[in-house]
Computed example of a mutant assay.
Amino acid sequence: MTLLAVKKTKNDYFEEIFITAAVSKNLKTRALTFDSRYAYLSNLKLIYRANWTFFYYTKKQRNNSSKISIDIILK
């Protein structure tokens, strides 16, 4: 019997890591920062529903990586 390779997306990995962190009893933080590549609606809802604060970074101009703005989104 062969196992089918399950292709996970970066959002699948994000969800797994976040859920592991959120249920950890040793973790004292309730805030999270990440790149806009992970700012998909499903990820944002997951963070929001866990009552965490999140910050994500976006590039203002994709052609000039030296200009970066920070969008701060609070509950």
Rank of each mutant, 00 (worst) to 15 (best):
Y40Q: 11
I17H: 05
S69I: 15
I73E: 08
L3C: 11
S36F: 07
K10R: 14
K45N: 12
A22R: 05
Y48I: 09
F55L: 13
A21S: 08
F54S: 00
A21E: 04
T9H: 03
L27W: 04
L46R: 03
Q61C: 04
N11D: 15
N51D: 14
R62T: 04
Y38W: 01
T2R: 06
I72P: 00
S69C: 14
Y48H: 11
I47R: 00
S24R: 14
Y38I: 01
A22C: 10
K28W: 05
S24Q: 12
K10C: 09
R37S: 14
F55M: 10
I72T: 12
K60F: 07
N11K: 05
N11P: 06
A21K: 04
T20W: 05
S36H: 08
K59P: 00
T58M: 02
T2G: 08
K75R: 14
D71M: 04
Y38S: 00
L4Y: 10
S42W: 02
D35M: 02
S36R: 10
L32Y: 05
A31L: 08
Y13P: 03
A22V: 05
S66R: 12
K75Q: 14
T58H: 03
K59R: 10
K45E: 07
S65G: 07
L27A: 07
L3G: 13
E15D: 02
A21L: 12
N43E: 01
K7N: 11
R30E: 15
S36V: 07
R62S: 05
L46I: 04
T29M: 08
R30A: 12
L41I: 07
W52A: 01
Y56I: 01
K45R: 10
T20S: 13
L4D: 13
R30T: 15
K75S: 14
R37H: 12
I17Q: 09
T33L: 09
K28L: 13
Q61M: 04
N64I: 14
S65P: 15
Q61I: 06
L32G: 03
I70W: 04
F55K: 11
T20L: 08
F14C: 00
K67N: 15
I19G: 02
N26H: 15
F34E: 02
A22D: 12
F34K: 01
F54A: 01
S69M: 13
S65V: 14
E15G: 01
F18A: 02
Y38Q: 00
Y57F: 05
F34D: 00
Y56F: 13
T53M: 09
S65E: 13
A22F: 03
K7P: 02
T2L: 06
A22E: 08
L27I: 08
K45M: 05
L46F: 03
Y56L: 01
S69G: 15
I17Y: 05
A21W: 02
S42M: 03
K67C: 13
N63D: 15
L3W: 10
N51S: 14
K60R: 10
A50P: 00
A21T: 06
V23W: 03
I70R: 07
T53F: 07
V23L: 07
S24A: 15
V23N: 13
N11M: 08
I19V: 11
F54T: 00
E16G: 08
K60P: 02
K8S: 11
N11E: 15
T2C: 05
W52D: 01
A5I: 13
S69R: 12
R30M: 12
N63T: 14
Q61A: 05
N63I: 09
K28R: 15
T33K: 08
Y48R: 10
E15R: 03
A31I: 06
